[in-house]
């Protein structure tokens, strides 16, 4: 057999054995046998030296071709085996993308907090600072300084939790904060919102709670008008409920504002056409407001001849109920997780 034929046989044998290498280990054994320092291919190369001079060139070319071909076959085989192994690993397990994922535990704000935060953000853009005032109040701050003298019929509108300390009560509205902020800030102009808890001596039903939140607003300045009040509330409502809301100001009465108004927004559910939520009126009551009564300005230290101001108040629970379609206010403070989890 000529040397060339031997080389061809050698290559065929190497490639056959290579095809039998099924993993890294077999491949390595093959490499050592064929391409290792003492392997068959280097041995064939070494034979050049033992050949007659005139045959060396031709044999050298042939053995080099063999070496390259075997080397290439090895690389290809190694690549193939890696891909096979990766594929085997990738598809080893069945995969169902519809199985539930691993969820991080999710926390949430209470809907009242979230609503108050939203209200505070909107008013912050208009220069309103958050002012926090106390819950347990005196009769003086909760009523008298707000123009509800003792025995005044308007007190009947706000049934009160009294404490065992005479003239100490749970505030029925956030409005005593008006006096507190005015007394603290005089003679600065004022632009604040006062969020907080309020309490009413009322039987708890789907529509009324003994505890609820209010967000009060108070602006005092040298040039504050009812028109400013309307503009501010329109801007607020446009941001809270979306542009283009209709507002309706109805004359009303609060002892601490004059003129006073109740404010309705066109029903956010039916757009004013009439539905169960707006009781087929097309309007939803969302706010009470008015110009700060001169007596109240005076009680806060501001001369009503020089200063004027407006105040407004709203219930975040009421707003959250409208925004989220909640029909029972009792959910808010029973803190049933089945309720809280939905926000």
């Amino acid at each position: 057999m000529s040397q060339h034929q031997e080389l061809i046989q050698l290559q065929a044998q190497a490639e056959n054995e290579l095809a039998d290498a099924r993993d890294e280990k077999q491949l390595e054994a093959w490499r050592i046998k064929w391409l290792g320092r003492k392997g068959l291919v280097p041995a064939a190369v070494k034979q050049i030296g033992s050949l007659p001079k005139e045959e060396r060139a031709a044999y050298g070319q042939a053995v080099n071709r063999l070496k390259q071909a075997v080397q290439a076959a090895f690389e290809a085989r190694r690549q193939q085996l890696r891909e096979d192994a990766m594929a085997a690993e990738l598809y080893a397990e069945g995969f169902d993308p519809t199985l539930p994922g691993r969820r991080p535990q999710i926390g949430r704000l209470h809907p009242s907090s979230a609503t108050m935060r939203e209200i505070a953000h909107i008013f912050a853009h208009m220069g309103f600072e958050v002012y926090t005032a106390r819950d347990v109040e005196t009769d003086e701050y909760n009523f008298q300084l707000l123009n509800f003298p003792k025995g005044h019929p308007a007190r009947e509108m706000q049934d009160t939790f009294h404490t065992t300390v005479p003239d100490v009560l749970l505030r029925t509205h956030t409005s005593p904060g008006q006096i507190r902020v005015m007394r603290e800030r005089y003679p600065e102009p004022i632009r604040v919102i006062l969020p907080g808890k309020c309490y009413r001596y009322e039987q708890v039903t789907a529509r009324s709670e003994m505890m609820f939140h209010q967000v009060e607003g108070l602006v005092v300045g040298k040039n504050i008008t009812f028109a400013d009040l309307k503009g501010t509330l329109q801007a607020f409502v446009d941001q809270l409920f979306g542009e283009g809301r209709q507002l309706r100001f109805r004359a009303s009465h609060f002892p601490f504002t004059e003129p006073s108004a109740e404010v309705d927004v066109d029903c956010i559910l039916c757009g004013g056409k009439g539905c169960r939520v707006c009781k087929y009126t097309g309007w939803l009551e969302i706010l009470g407001c008015g110009m700060v009564h001169p007596n109240v300005l005076r009680n806060g230290g501001y001369d009503p001849e020089e200063w004027s101001g407006y105040a407004f108040g709203m219930g975040p629970e009421r707003i959250a109920m409208l925004l989220h379609g909640v029909d029972d206010i009792r959910y808010f403070f029973s803190n049933d997780v089945r309720f809280l989890e939905q926000f």
């Binding site: 208009m126 220069g127 600072e129 800030r185 600065e188 102009p189 004022i190 632009r191 602006v219 300045g221 040298k222 040039n223 504050i224 008008t225 009812f226 028109a227 400013d228 309307k230 503009g231 501010t232 329109q234 801007a235 309706r248 100001f249 109805r250 004359a251 004059e258 003129p259 006073s260 108004a261 110009m291 009564h293 001169p294 009503p304």
Partner: peptide, 29 residues
């Protein structure tokens, strides 16, 4: 006077009062 102003606003109509944005001095923030 505020009692009379309320009456004027009521009869003039709250809806007829314009909407303006606060133009007064911004209080210390």
């Amino acid at each position: 006077t505020a009692d009379v102003l309320e009456e004027i606003a009521r009869i003039y109509g709250y809806d007829a009062i314009p909407e303006t944005l606060l133009a007064d001095e911004l209080p210390p923030q």
